[in-house]
Design a protein around this nucleic acid. Structure first.
Length: 180
DNA sequence: GATAAGATGTTA
DNA sequence: AACATCTTATCA
């Protein structure tokens, strides 16, 4: 399997979000490698009021300004983690939130951003992990090809700010996309 | 089915 | 006080 390089992430966030659908997320654990196809994502950029980086380089959001191709993992609602991939050139903030995976093999419950982090045991210790290297315990490879016609665009979920931005993308009729 | 409430801790 | 969530309870 071909690992996805930094160049892929060093682009406009909206483009990366659409192009990463169908790619395969891998997590190496003591009991083996857990994998899933990315089937649902959302985009966030520094000009976007809903983005953590909108207010600038706060301690939490500083990761978003770093080099593309690293993970941004944060803790939310007192019990869940959410995993993003940092995009855009160094010193420009941008990220793609991984919202759902199609698990391989189909055992884990990965149809939501908090659930997939729990299933793959992704915690804040993975913040700033280089996901373009197989030496990491978290990386992304090429997966299946998703035709443009199969990509559905909608507004993002669970936010109040910029709720009208059509920056959520998912694979049409995939059973593992988060509920309604 | 739908909608509401509760759990829980970090952030600025 | 809000929060890029999810589960459980309580209706119908």
């Amino acid at each position: 399997m071909t690992i996805i390089s930094q160049d892929f992430y060093n682009r406009n966030t909206l483009e990366v979000a659409k192009d990463i659908l169908g790619c395969k997320l891998n997590r190496r654990t003591e009991s083996g490698i857990l994998s899933g196809i990315i089937v649902e994502v959302e985009a966030y950029t520094q000009e976007d009021p809903a983005c953590h980086a909108f207010k600038g380089k706060t301690p939490r959001a500083i990761t978003l300004f770093k080099q593309p191709g690293i993970a941004y993992v944060y803790f939310i609602y007192g019990m869940y983690h959410c995993m993003n991939i940092v995009t855009e050139e160094y010193d420009r903030a941008g990220a793609v939130l991984i919202r759902a995976l199609e698990p391989l093999p189909p055992t884990e419950n990965t149809n939501g951003p908090g659930k997939l982090c729990k299933a793959l045991n992704i915690t804040k210790e993975f913040n700033e992990t280089d996901i373009t290297s197989k030496e990491s315990d978290l990386w992304i490879e090429e997966g299946i090809i998703v035709p443009k016609k199969q990509i559905i665009t909608t507004t993002r979920i669970g936010i109040k700010l910029a709720a009208d931005f059509p920056w959520r993308f998912y694979i049409k009729e995939n059973k593992f996309v988060s509920k309604l």
